[in-house]
Simulated assay, not measured.
Amino acid sequence: MLVSAKQQSMILPPKRPGEDPTADAAGGLQSAALQALRDNVQAQASQGSAQAQASIARQATQQVNATTAISDKVDEAFAKTRVQLQTVASPTSDAAKVPDSTAMADFKEYMSKTPEERLRDSILEEMGITQEEVEAMPPEKQLAIGQEIAQRMQDKMAMAQVEKDQQSRATDKEPATDMFLASL
């Protein structure tokens, strides 16, 4: 199955609470920080001094500010990532207008060939010849190369059949082994 290199832009519906894992993770971090702050405040408040309470208030304010700053940075990072992903996926971006690369063109050319043509090309490559060189040869040499290719194709098909037979024999023995292992 071939997939188009061009993606259509997708407009994602707003997510409800519990559906966006990034928002849930950020909320979890913020909740954990607030709980640690409360525990710290309660521990120091039990000491009872006015100085300790003022210190606790300052620490609480600092921790709330730090938690808010972290939460803002996390939200900003997620927003930047989402914008980048939407930009890459949009058909109006410059990346979508780039013509096919040589690798893409080679891949499309390869996939358009039949299995026999692919096998013929691989045999020619093994022989160190290109199709253009074969076409430039005299008819006698073309016939000799054609016979060599036909012989190699038959050899490869015979080898593939032998491997298939060996695999089928191996799989015939495996069900008994699998049944034995399953019974354990």
Rank of each mutant, 00 (worst) to 15 (best):
R152L: 02
D155N: 10
Q59N: 08
A150L: 06
V98H: 03
Q166M: 15
D94L: 15
D24A: 13
L143F: 14
R152K: 09
A50N: 12
M153Q: 12
S46K: 13
Q151L: 11
V162G: 06
S168D: 14
D39S: 11
S93E: 03
T81P: 04
T67G: 08
E117A: 14
M157H: 10
S101L: 04
Q7Y: 02
E163S: 06
S183V: 05
K73R: 13
L34S: 10
A57D: 11
A89S: 10
I129W: 02
A170G: 08
M1E: 04
A105F: 00
E140R: 08
L29S: 06
P14Q: 01
Y110M: 09
R38C: 03
D178H: 02
Q84E: 10
V88D: 09
V3T: 14
Q161H: 03
D106I: 08
Q44S: 06
P138E: 13
E109F: 07
R169Y: 11
P14C: 00
T114H: 02
Q147D: 06
L143T: 15
A176M: 13
K173T: 07
D106P: 03
S93V: 05
E163N: 12
K73N: 08
T81E: 09
A79C: 00
I11T: 11
A158M: 11
L184V: 10
D178V: 14
I129D: 00
E76M: 09
